[in-house]
Design a protein around this nucleic acid. Structure first.
Lengths: 250, 250
DNA sequence: CGCTCGGTTGAAAATCGTCAAATGGCGTGG
DNA sequence: CCACGCCATTTGACGATTTTCAACCGAGCG
């Protein structure tokens, strides 16, 4: 049941418990310590004491939980979703290695969404205490945190753009291009991968019904752009896929 | 042409140039210095040196501009929008008194959207320099900034929920309820106000065509929930309007 | 006084959602 | 090892909502 990940590297990073420090992590160029000096990196190593495994289907945190730490995905795959009062839930994002979870918790020190592992995953915890109290002593961390939060805001603008202005095919194409790009940045194949989420989850993320998502995949398959078999995706014609996304001229 | 605002208070705040300090601002409970001590408030007063007037239709900043300061809306009304490469633009939010503009600029020190005044407006500037360099010396400001950014992320989750799961009437109802709530928090009437934006702008914000927005207004009017005459809105049946918004039981 | 821009309304068309049924993996238990 | 059942996915047909295209109205401004 503990399927490791997509078929690639990352093994160097998955050693025993406490050798895994930010300074030796394969994801350090994508994660919080971007641009840190050696000294700053060492300080971060001290902060990030706790690591945690989350099994497939389990929650890293849930809406309403007290915000005790920010989490960085070390390996695996998550979704964040907000369950509305009337039951339906909305996926607000999918997170993979190097991406942060819990940025919504600073406001009232309570998590405002659920973070669910879509495969067996590992996270690093940056304690909220540390962020609050070492604020003065560690300006580089503060700065980087502002940048990451800012980037999250911009990312969500992109999602709003997608939800607001694109039609079904375009949304699915944009979703796949985005996923491929992020996988590539992590050393995985951008053209051949396994979806970790259901059609339903893709649907609520993209503002579509699961049947519509399925139909879009089928259409892309029919047009010779994708090979789809269940969750196995192979992008046959990357350029054609990109052309489907509005506002992608270059 | 310099219509002051909706028809209410705020006059105490709109005095001469340099008397207007955060500590004496009517919006201080809604803006950055929430929870600050007198001493902290005084320090913020020092930081917020520059104030600026932006006339209706003008840009406070544009996408690509260097990020030199964060802005707090003192009076007036703004929209933020991202113009995609293919020309269409997407409104990502509407900002009124006490709300911050420019949170998307921390990532690469460049604004990632346009901020346009929808009426003659005033803003206070918190220089980026100050935020970066006084980081250590002013932890309360750092903390509050994290909270505000966190809140913006949560707000955008709400918009995603709206865009993803609601139908046209529901979106428009949610939009109006949100607007009314924010106006009320600022001492304006929550049931009678003037829209500062066009149907088109509401449309791109809500992911609808302007004609659909217009039709929704007409339908709400026909159902006796709203009085609509162009941009003059009077909410006749607040409860009925709220009931239209999914996930509003209490 | 006419023009332009924003708003409203109507009718036709397209997209997407809903309902329903069939298929196929995958894991469980015999 | 095989049969069964469950769940995710696919596909079809139909209907509802929303977009598109077009015409018209009205207010504000030169």
């Amino acid at each position: 049941m503990s399927m490791p990940l997509p078929p690639a590297s990352e093994t160097a990073c998955a050693g025993a418990r406490h050798q895994v420090a930010c300074s030796s992590c394969g994801l350090r160029e994508l994660c919080l310590p971007v641009g840190f000096s050696d000294a700053e990196m060492a300080r971060l190593d001290d902060l990030v004491g706790t690591r945690r495994t989350v099994r497939r289907g389990e929650a890293l945190f849930r809406r309403g939980d007290r915000f005790t730490a920010l989490f960085a995905v070390r390996g695996g795959f998550f979704k964040t979703c907000t369950t509305s009062e009337d039951g339906r839930d909305q996926v607000t994002g999918f997170q993979m290695g190097g991406e942060l979870l819990g940025l919504d918790g600073f406001d009232d020190e309570t998590h405002r969404c659920d973070a669910i592992a879509l495969e067996d995953s590992q996270v690093c915890a940056i304690p909220y205490e540390a962020i609050e109290h070492l604020s003065q002593a560690f300006p580089a961390l503060q700065r980087q945190l502002r940048r990451v939060m800012s980037r999250e805001i911009v990312r969500e603008h992109g999602v709003m753009m997608l939800l607001s202005g694109m039609r079904a095919d375009e949304r699915v194409a944009a979703f796949l291009v985005n996923l491929a790009t992020r996988l590539q940045a992590r050393g995985f194949s951008p053209s051949s991968f396994v979806l970790r989420m259901t059609r339903q989850e893709i649907g609520t993320y993209l503002g579509l019904q699961l049947e519509t998502v399925s139909r879009c995949f089928s259409r892309l398959h029919g047009d010779g752009i994708l090979d789809v078999r269940q969750r196995d995706i192979r992008i046959v014609d990357t350029e054609a896929l990109r052309r489907l996304v509005p506002g992608t001229s270059g």
